[in-house]
Amino acid sequence: MTRVGRWIGEHLVLGIGLLVLLYMFVPIAIVIGMSFNEPASRNSYSFNQFTLHNWANPCEPIGMCDSVVLSIQIGLLATLFATALGTLMAFALVRHRFRGRSVANVFTFLPMASPEIVMGSSLLALFVAGGLAGQLGFGTILVAHILFCLSFVVVTVKARLAGLDPRLEQAAMDLYANEWQTFWRVTFPLVFPGILSAALLSFSLSFDDFIITNLNAGQEVTFPMFVWGAAQRGIPPQINVVGTVMFLVALGLVLAGEVGSRRRARA
């Protein structure tokens, strides 16, 4: 093989991989670009003219900021509950031996493997059968969000726990730490990054959910539901401002986490 041929052979897969990544970022570029767009008319959704108006007046579309606030409230509460319940479950599944553990493992995985529309409709069927058809709203959305975040928390924390070297805890015990001290001084700090990741994942799942929420929201409007409604009527450019902010905040958190873990690794 010639040198050129070999170079292409070596880098072909990487090149294709980078092209696929590029493809994944094209819609994001559109979102960021459109956040600076002044639309020609209410119903036109194409780039017309550069403006900072949308960034200066993010709450102009009626109801949009309310929906963002609602989504943040639900996201925070769902994250809190799902992370707490899921972390306990992960500890049980990785660190404890009991009857039915493998059943419990499959059981926590199942919600992730069911289509959202099925999960959403069965919850709705439950609420209706329980006489809550008229009371759909904040509470029912929250219940649903905790449910679908829970499995993701379990999987994430479980992976972190499984990757923990058990000798670290044994060493602590050898140095006369009791179980409680070992847990708080050794185990928990080591698992904490996993719990934090699980919480971030929960929040983004909750903030972004549409299909399950739409079935169980009653009269409440979360941000994805606002976007859905806007997509039928004409999309205000401010939606892209929210999209861009979401993207930047999440990216910032992840990069900060990466830098943090590198610094820890070097120390």
């Binding site: 979102v31 859905w228 997509a231």
Partner: peptide
Amino acid sequence: APFFTSFLIR
């Protein structure tokens, strides 16, 4: 990273 913005907006 692209999935940090909302599914609907994408």
